[in-house]
């Protein structure tokens, strides 16, 4: 079982203009990924783009791996051109994973961060309260699929085209305040993946209410395996590698 393997593209489906799901079939035995782990992918052995890019494991079923991605720049554009039958080389699973929730939990996804959280919602079916923030209805991909795995779902979009208009962190605050009045010492851990400002706000919310908050961070990566020290984040105990000690950190460890 190697963490570096060849895989055949099974399909590469467009959800809309910006989002796609890539599914691949490894050509050798693989290590089973845990929710929160990631893989390094690139379109092929090209020199430009040169480096592989990190993507969270989105699905692992019937010996296939799938990834939900947003087309952003050169690397993801090339990924989007892959077709069924193409062979690529993959490194993974890498990084740590979300610690298993003991009971009910809160999952906060910002945009494509849903890719990282959906496997957790799936593993712990109907125990997660999903808070999903996105730019618009179009961008809240996989909402019904994720919602079906969750105990309750709350949505906020920047333009109000889906769910509430505004920030998902505001919705979460309201939810937590209500919980407080119902059950005094009710604490649900937060699991979050999304843009940094959202994660920073969540860490504040969690600190004020003394709840555990696990955040999956993003940083530019070269190797993905801890060798280059390119992907570090500042923590209370110095720089830590997002690809190795993370990508999931206790929000209290991060110097925001």
């Amino acid at each position: 079982m190697s963490k570096y393997f060849k895989a055949e593209i099974t399909d590469n489906i467009s959800l809309n203009k910006h989002f796609k799901i890539l599914t691949l079939t490894p050509q050798s035995d693989i290590v089973v990924p845990q929710p929160g782990q990631f893989y390094m992918l690139n379109s092929n052995n090209t020199y430009d783009p040169l480096l592989k890019r990190p993507f969270s494991i989105f699905g692992c079923k019937n010996n296939t791996l799938s990834f939900l991605y947003r087309i952003r720049g050169k690397g993801t554009s090339c990924l989007s051109n892959l077709r069924g039958g193409d062979i690529i080389e993959v490194i993974g699973p890498l990084g740590n994973n979300y610690p298993e929730p003991a009971g009910d939990f809160i999952a906060v996804a910002g945009g494509v961060g849903i890719a990282s959280l959906l496997p957790l919602l799936d593993k712990r079916k109907n125990t997660g309260y999903l808070f999903y923030g996105a730019r618009s209805k179009d961008e809240s991909v996989m909402l019904s699929e994720a919602g079906a795995l969750s105990k309750e779902t709350f949505v906020a979009t920047d333009d109000g085209s889906e769910g509430r208009k505004g920030l998902i962190t505001e919705l979460l605050k309201g939810f937590l305040n209500n919980l407080k009045s119902e059950i005094s010492n009710f604490t649900l851990p937060i699991y979050a993946c999304g843009p940094n400002p959202m994660l920073k706000e969540l860490s504040k919310i969690a600190r004020e209410r003394r709840i555990k908050c696990y955040v999956s961070l993003e940083e530019h990566m070269a190797c993905g395996v801890g060798a280059c020290l390119g992907c570090v984040v500042k923590t209370v105990s110095g720089y830590r590698r997002v690809c190795k000690e993370g990508s999931v950190f206790d929000s209290e460890e991060i110097v925001w």
Partner: peptide, 8 residues
């Protein structure tokens, strides 16, 4: 401790 990010 090295440089702040982005480093690469």
């Amino acid at each position: 401790q090295g440089n702040p990010t982005p480093r690469i």
